[in-house]
């Protein structure tokens, strides 16, 4: 039970609505992630990637099966406990950044700590350090609408790990970025993973972004289709991903 993420027979069924068929978004999925892993979840649209992420992060509830993050069974937690758990143990990077427009970048990064009533001096220290780490220290007092998408995503990443969470979830973090910014942010996530030993689970359909991962789980129709491990060479891993994707597309 040393795994950071443990998923057992996870199933999520969307009830039929207005005569439409029942949809099994996740079907008996099981996998686990060790501390410090960088896992990518890939799959075509509608394969259940985002549903998986939502269930893992406690935003959505599974129909059956179990999820444990850092040894805590998510379904045992009450609503408010879950909120606190998310705040302290889970970091989240969104495709559309989800920064609050009313806060400066620095305040945005500090928000989880502020919500947790951490002492201002400590907040200051941690946030400054992280912003320097992500190379946005000089943008501290800028508002989200003043900076570029890449800079926003760096701030979002800093926010995700400011509480030193057990796991960091990333939902298409490069989806809204140009290729240069996408590469930058992936470098950052890799650095986060390697230097700070953050466990990262990233959902993406961008093979380039996925090539930064150490392991990739492909899901299709709610089930795990395939898993591959990076040997260390990113270029080779990238080619491997492309190949698998084309095969999967062919099957579809």
């Amino acid at each position: 039970m040393n795994d950071m993420i443990q998923v057992e027979n996870l199933t999520k069924v969307y009830r039929s609505f207005k005569g439409a068929k029942e949809v099994k978004a996740l079907d008996q999925i099981s996998f686990s992630a060790a501390p410090g892993e960088f896992i990518g979840i890939m799959g075509p649209s509608g394969s259940g990637k985002t549903t998986l992420l939502n269930v893992l992060s406690g935003v959505d509830h599974p129909s059956s099966g179990e999820v444990a993050i850092a040894g805590h069974a998510m379904d045992k937690l009450k609503r408010d406990e879950l909120a606190l758990f998310r705040r302290r143990k889970i970091g989240y990077v969104f495709q559309d950044f989800n920064l609050l427009d009313s806060l400066t970048l620095k305040e945005n990064v500090a928000l989880p700590l502020i919500l947790d009533r951490v002492a201002p001096r400590e907040i200051e220290q941690r946030v400054d350090e992280l912003m320097a780490f992500f190379g946005i220290a000089d943008l501290a007092n800028k508002y989200p609408y003043h900076v570029s998408g890449g800079q926003k995503q760096r701030a979002a990443a800093a926010r995700a790990i400011v509480t030193n969470p057990a796991v960091c979830f990333a939902d298409e973090p490069t989806g809204n970025l140009d290729s240069k910014s996408a590469a930058d942010i992936m470098e950052m996530l890799t650095q986060m993973n390697e230097e700070r030993a953050s466990t990262i689970l990233m959902v993406t359909h961008d093979p380039f972004a996925a090539s930064y991962c150490k392991r990739i789980i492909f899901i299709k129709d709610g089930q795990i289709n395939l898993q591959i491990q990076s040997a260390g060479d990113r270029k080779a891993f990238f080619d491997q991903i492309l190949e698998i994707l084309s095969v999967m597309r062919g099957e579809a």
């Binding site: 889970i90 989800n98 989880p112």
Partner: peptide, 15 residues
């Protein structure tokens, strides 16, 4: 919108 976002970050209902 704001509340949905804050809830994702981990704001409790009471907060």
């Amino acid at each position: 919108e704001q509340v949905a976002l804050l809830q994702k970050i981990g704001l409790t209902a009471a907060e």
